[in-house]
């Protein structure tokens, strides 16, 4: 359990971090709650997501919904993180869950916090998370007809594929100085040409 505390984060807070951690641990289980980077963080299963948000709002006083977003955690799935805040007690709470990559479905939080509507729309279009029961799950920022989920790490950045990375991917790997036979590391967003593109499968 990480115990690094960011004092600035707790300034003005009327609850001591350990007291809040104890309260959260008592409600959600000691294993789920921890302090990470100075913020009390709760990890829950997707099935308990709505109950957790509801408990944070009703029992822990976190009535202010700050934001909700996705995190691509590669083989571990797609993380969904929500940040809530208590305006009365001035404490923060970070709620996290994780859904599988290929079946990214999570019940919508709009029934608990109505402000989650646009956050979930953005997370849906950027990470491909389907928020079941969302009243209007259409793309928020992407232009019409956009295909793909651009903030997933396996999204192919076509410009990077077409044009060589101008800077250094690794130290000593700038384009001009590289020995021709040495394998060049690929920047994020560019798949291995052996498995993607016109040369796929050529070994």
């Amino acid at each position: 359990m990480a115990r690094r505390l960011c004092t600035r984060r707790w300034s003005g807070c009327r609850v001591a971090p350990d007291d809040l951690l104890a309260a959260v641990g008592a409600r959600f289980g000691d294993d789920a709650a921890q302090i990470e980077y100075g913020t009390v963080t709760v990890d829950v299963e997707p099935a308990a997501w709505i109950d957790t948000l509801k408990a944070a709002r009703d029992e822990l006083g976190c009535t202010f919904f700050d934001w909700l977003c996705g995190v691509d955690e590669l083989d571990d799935g797609i993380g969904v993180v929500a940040h809530v805040y208590s305006r009365a007690e001035h404490h923060h709470l970070l709620l996290r869950t994780r859904v599988p990559r290929h079946a990214a479905v999570l019940p919508t939080a709009t029934s608990i916090f109505r402000g989650a509507n646009w956050h979930e729309r953005e997370t849906a279009e950027m990470f491909g998370v389907d928020f079941a029961g969302h009243p209007n799950l259409v793309p928020l920022l992407l232009p019409e007809g956009f295909e793909g989920t651009p903030l997933r790490k396996d999204f192919v950045l076509a410009s990077r594929v077409a044009k060589q990375w101008p800077g250094e991917v690794d130290p000593g790997q700038s384009a001009g100085e590289l020995a021709p036979n040495r394998r060049r590391n690929l920047p994020p967003g560019v798949p291995d040409p052996k498995v993607w593109g016109p040369g796929a499968g050529t070994g």
Partner: peptide
């Protein structure tokens, strides 16, 4: 030309 966002998924080059 797209500037520092030349490789972005959403920026016109």
């Amino acid at each position: 030309c797209g500037g520092p966002y030349w490789d972005s998924y959403c920026v016109t080059k």
